[in-house]
Computed example of a mutant assay.
Amino acid sequence: MNFLDLLRAVFALAFTLGIIGLAAWAARRYAPQLLAKLSAERGERRMKVVETLVLDPARRLVLVKIDDEERLLILGEGRELIEPRGPNTDAGAGS
């Protein structure tokens, strides 16, 4: 390998690293605004995880809000249990 081939390989490596660095800079600079704009266009999500509580290594409680209703889920060991839904499940109903 002569000097010219070595110099060409070094310049190709520098050019490639420069493009990668430019892409990383552009992602840091413009990606947060782009992601915020895309999520704003998508609208408000109907389902949210309000809170989780780890009971033990195999089970956890998850409070999920769907539209304006909160549901309690017990997850673990390959099973899911959803709290039973009765006619008076609202927080302030009947009080």
Score class of each variant (00 low, 15 high):
residue 59 R to M: 10
residue 10 V to W: 13
residue 30 Y to V: 05
residue 18 G to Q: 09
residue 18 G to C: 10
residue 34 L to V: 03
residue 46 R to P: 05
residue 10 V to F: 08
residue 17 L to Y: 12
residue 2 N to Q: 11
residue 67 D to K: 05
residue 13 L to Y: 13
residue 26 A to N: 10
residue 94 G to I: 08
residue 90 D to L: 12
residue 42 R to I: 02
residue 65 K to E: 15
residue 25 W to L: 14
residue 31 A to G: 07
residue 15 F to A: 06
residue 69 E to I: 07
residue 7 L to A: 12
residue 32 P to L: 02
residue 74 I to Q: 02
residue 10 V to E: 15
residue 33 Q to D: 07
residue 87 P to L: 06
residue 52 T to F: 06
residue 46 R to Y: 08
residue 30 Y to P: 01
residue 43 G to E: 10
residue 36 A to T: 06
residue 84 P to A: 09
residue 89 T to H: 07
residue 49 V to Y: 06
residue 39 S to Q: 09
residue 53 L to A: 04
residue 47 M to S: 02
residue 77 E to C: 05
residue 75 L to I: 14
residue 15 F to K: 06
residue 17 L to M: 14
residue 85 R to I: 07
residue 83 E to Q: 14
residue 60 R to W: 04
residue 70 E to Y: 02
residue 56 D to Q: 09
residue 76 G to A: 12
residue 80 E to G: 11
residue 10 V to S: 09
residue 14 A to V: 12
residue 50 V to E: 09
residue 33 Q to M: 13
residue 36 A to G: 05
residue 20 I to R: 11
residue 44 E to L: 07
residue 22 L to E: 05
residue 19 I to D: 10
residue 84 P to S: 03
residue 52 T to L: 08
residue 67 D to R: 03
residue 44 E to H: 09
residue 81 L to S: 13
residue 5 D to T: 02
residue 26 A to T: 04
residue 26 A to M: 06
residue 71 R to Q: 04
residue 36 A to H: 06
residue 21 G to V: 03
residue 90 D to V: 03
residue 37 K to H: 08
residue 46 R to M: 05
residue 9 A to T: 02
residue 70 E to D: 04
residue 80 E to L: 15
residue 46 R to H: 13
residue 91 A to R: 12
residue 64 V to H: 02
residue 37 K to V: 02
residue 93 A to E: 15
residue 92 G to S: 12
residue 87 P to T: 14
residue 9 A to F: 11
residue 4 L to Y: 13
residue 17 L to R: 09
residue 84 P to K: 11
residue 71 R to N: 01
residue 18 G to Y: 14
residue 87 P to C: 03
residue 64 V to N: 02
residue 66 I to Q: 10
residue 40 A to Y: 06
residue 67 D to L: 12
residue 40 A to E: 14
residue 54 V to K: 01
residue 52 T to K: 03
residue 40 A to P: 00
residue 53 L to E: 07
residue 93 A to T: 09
residue 84 P to V: 02
residue 39 S to F: 00
residue 46 R to S: 15
residue 21 G to R: 10
residue 66 I to N: 08
residue 38 L to M: 11
residue 1 M to P: 05
residue 79 R to N: 14
residue 75 L to G: 01
